[in-house]
Design a protein around this nucleic acid. Sequence first.
DNA 1: CGACTATATTCAAATACAGGTATATTACTG
DNA 2: CAGTAATATACCTGTATTTGAATATAGTCG
Lengths: 144, 144
Amino acid sequence: MNVSRKAPTSPAGLIQIYRCFCDETRLRIVNLLAHGPLCVCHLQELLDSPQVKISKHLGYLKAKGVVTAERRRNWMIYSLPEKPSAALDANLKCLQDCTQTHAIFKADVRRLSKIAAKVEWLNETGECCAAPAPKARRSLSTRK
Amino acid sequence: MNVSRKAPTSPAGLIQIYRCFCDETRLRIVNLLAHGPLCVCHLQELLDSPQVKISKHLGYLKAKGVVTAERRRNWMIYSLPEKPSAALDANLKCLQDCTQTHAIFKADVRRLSKIAAKVEWLNETGECCAAPAPKARRSLSTRK
DNA sequence: CGACTATATTCAAATACAGGTATATTACTG
DNA sequence: CAGTAATATACCTGTATTTGAATATAGTCG
């Protein structure tokens, strides 16, 4: 459980962090997760990207230890790790500085704040999802 | 209109930095350059790598603006930029923290300090190279 | 059970990249 | 001028990455 603080011979872990950070979609995901946990459908909506794309990038980030995932009912909740490695912690902070000056990240956060209610709803009641408002679900009369 | 230096819409520049940082050889080069300018043959010696490999990574770094190059006589002197972008500056500082805890980077710097004399020699007299000691160079006084 | 929702995985195609060998370029030296 | 040293580039090959389409899985609900 405890992670050793010895000096690794190879900077493999550090490089994995940079690999995770060198894709725009992943950067935007990490930037959003810095504000709190989100499920896949939230990210889909916020980044306006297909589910496969988001899911695969999340899988990538998770495999490298940059995010953690926890299942809640039907949804996977992704977060930044509670106890990140020193290198990850430093780079997350650095990234937060860097994102301040890029419009796309600020726009993402702005959009995030607009669905904050839905996210709260998820966190408190365990209900989702971000995508279509849960009421606009007509009956199946017109369905085949 | 969109030539602003303040808030680029796309984080392309930031991503380029991370792309540069996600290779071990390049990380070692940047770490060494943080201590001062070096020519290709110094890096060849310090990293014990073939010339092509070093040269190509330097070309990559230079293309993304992470290093600068200046020709001096026969040699190309590579340095970190004097006025790096905010993002690069932040990430270089972060990297310096991260390298502290990795043996390979410390070993590189230790080896660098051992050839410091040669590097000085380059910087002061314009003479190189790190690789084979200037053995048959008897006619030093004829130059200048 | 079967329909539905949220998410993950497999397959395939396009592109990027790292490393090597051989060759080119550039500058210096005699 | 030719020769050589330092560095760069072209080409090749295997591997990794990115993305999308289709499909699979897992949990929930009626």
